[in-house]
């Protein structure tokens, strides 16, 4: 078993890939906020156009963006159906106990568009940023939280170590699975309960090994003078370039536009 792709990073070299992760993170938040600010068709059209422009800029094939919709597709449909049938108002049609109202239709459409744009918008961030860069960016963005004793550095260190060990543990799972199959374990038949039970001989050795690795790694880190975030310098510190300031400016303009749309009700 090879490397599993993490998050969903799509490696290519676009201007969006080269942006500072902090910009992309804040940009995504602003985009999500503005989706909930605007409520008219013009606003959604603008948001969709902005998304389209970003996809072009990112050089990520469109099907990768659509793929990000897959896990939430079910939620999307359910949300839309609930809004469609359960909103009181002017009745358009009804059959049996179900009533479709004008307000319900509008709300369902709005919810659907919002959710779809939200997921696709944030997928642009994860498609163009490596999980590691994202961790770094978040550490820097949230560093003010250190003042209220949030262990920001430690959390980000934990995240990046987890990222490093996921492929190793996946490989190990595979190895243990094969070893147990060789000893007569059966992972593929029986009902749900039986299958869950058959996971025990897989999970126990996996946990034992994970703890051993954690112990080894902690020792190796200590041996290399790791003592938390204080007094630590960075090999690859994040620094803003000109394009990052430009991106911030565009983000700010976008937010301003969304606020105007909100006020005008477009």
């Amino acid at each position: 078993m090879g490397e599993i792709s993490l998050g969903q990073y799509y490696p290519t070299n676009s201007i969006l890939h080269r942006l500072d992760p902090r910009v992309k993170f804040i940009g995504t938040i602003v985009y999500i906020v503005s989706l909930f600010l605007v409520s008219g068709p013009v606003g959604y059209l603008c948001a969709a156009l902005a998304l389209f422009a970003l996809v072009l800029l990112s050089k990520v094939p469109f099907r990768f963006i659509l793929k990000s919709m897959k896990p939430i597709f079910f939620i999307l449909i359910v949300t839309m159906l609930f809004n469609l049938f359960l909103t009181p108002g002017e009745e358009l049609a009804h059959f049996l106990i179900f009533r479709i109202t004008r307000e319900g239709l509008v709300l369902a459409l709005r919810m659907g568009i919002r959710l779809a744009l939200l997921v696709m918008g944030s997928s642009i961030m994860t498609l163009t940023t490596t999980p590691n860069a994202l961790t770094d960016g978040m550490e820097r963005l949230f560093s003010p939280l250190k003042l209220i004793k949030v262990p920001v550095h430690e959390i980000s260190m934990m995240m990046s170590i987890a990222l490093r060990f996921i492929p190793i543990l996946t490989e190990e799972t595979d190895k243990i699975k094969k070893a147990q199959i060789a000893r007569g374990a059966d992972f593929d038949s029986g009902g749900l309960i039986k299958r869950l039970k058959s996971m025990i001989p897989l999970l126990v050795p996996l946990f034992v090994s994970a703890f051993r690795r954690a112990n080894d790694l902690a020792m190796a880190m200590e041996a290399r003078c790791y003592h938390g975030g204080t007094g630590r310098t960075q090999m690859k510190p994040l620094t803003y370039a000109k394009k990052d300031y430009c991106a911030y400016l565009i983000t700010a303009l976008f937010l301003a536009l969304a606020i105007i749309f909100r006020v005008k009700g477009w």
Binding site: R164, L217, M221, C225
Partner: peptide, 17 residues
């Protein structure tokens, strides 16, 4: 004992500390 997700970042880990 390798902490970094990229080779040069791992070598830089000690000096960073």
């Amino acid at each position: 004992q390798i902490i970094g997700t990229v080779v040069d970042e791992d070598v830089g880990f000690g000096p960073e500390n």
